[in-house]
């Protein structure tokens, strides 16, 4: 399944953000009661239909019933070069970074209906910037067909006691884009 989706992704041309978003697009009740593997399969079936590579009936039957899109499948000899190609999600910054290491920030208490990488458990919490990674492709835009829209990416440290209450003493870190953060 992993290999299958990596290879068909070469033809489909979708981004990793669109892929993750598709995996999350199940009905909430189904999502929470199904395995990770099912999320993945759901994502694959969704993307194939959305990108016009296969119809719902074809996916259900496992048999082709419509003409294929003209495409050259990744040959066996290209697999190793593809999986070991050096890529980067860093892009040219369009503005100076708002924050620097040591800054106190708060995650915004936002609830977008589309794909986002701001975890729900970290919304509205105070943290500290501990690393600046440059401007990176912004999943909230890229997953939804609005382009890469790069934004500054930071590692933010949170005290578990502030996030969960009680006597938790560990530290939690997450990599968060600037639009998720505000000054504290």
């Amino acid at each position: 399944m992993f290999a299958l989706m990596n290879l068909v992704g070469d033809i489909g041309g979708w981004s990793i953000d669109e892929d993750r978003s598709a995996c999350e697009s199940m009905a909430p009740g189904d999502y929470i009661t199904s395995s990770y593997y099912e999320h993945w399969l759901h994502g694959a079936e969704t993307l194939l239909q959305k990108h016009g590579l296969a119809t719902r009936d074809e996916i259900a039957s496992g048999r082709a019933a419509t003409p294929s899109r003209a495409a050259t499948p990744t040959p066996a000899s290209s697999v190793w070069p593809a999986v070991t190609a050096r890529g980067s999600y860093q892009r040219q910054a369009r503005a100076p970074a708002l924050f620097e290491v040591g800054d106190a920030v708060r995650t915004r208490n936002i609830h977008p209906t589309g794909h986002t990488r701001l975890p729900r458990y970290l919304r509205g919490h105070a943290g500290e910037i501990i690393a600046v990674h440059g401007a990176h492709v912004f999943p909230d835009s890229n997953a939804n067909g609005r382009g890469e829209d790069p934004h500054w990416l930071y590692t933010v440290r949170f005290n578990a006691g502030e996030v969960w209450g009680g006597g938790s003493s560990h530290l939690i870190h997450a990599d968060l884009w600037e639009p998720y953060l505000e000054s504290l």
């Binding site: 299958l4 290879l7 296969a54 996916i59």
Partner: peptide, 29 residues
Amino acid sequence: LALRVKALESLLVEKGYVDPAALDVMIDT
């Protein structure tokens, strides 16, 4: 679930989107 995956694999190979030899290499990798 396994049947659904097998159906998907057959379909993608039949439609010419995935080369079975490349699948083998990817898995072995």
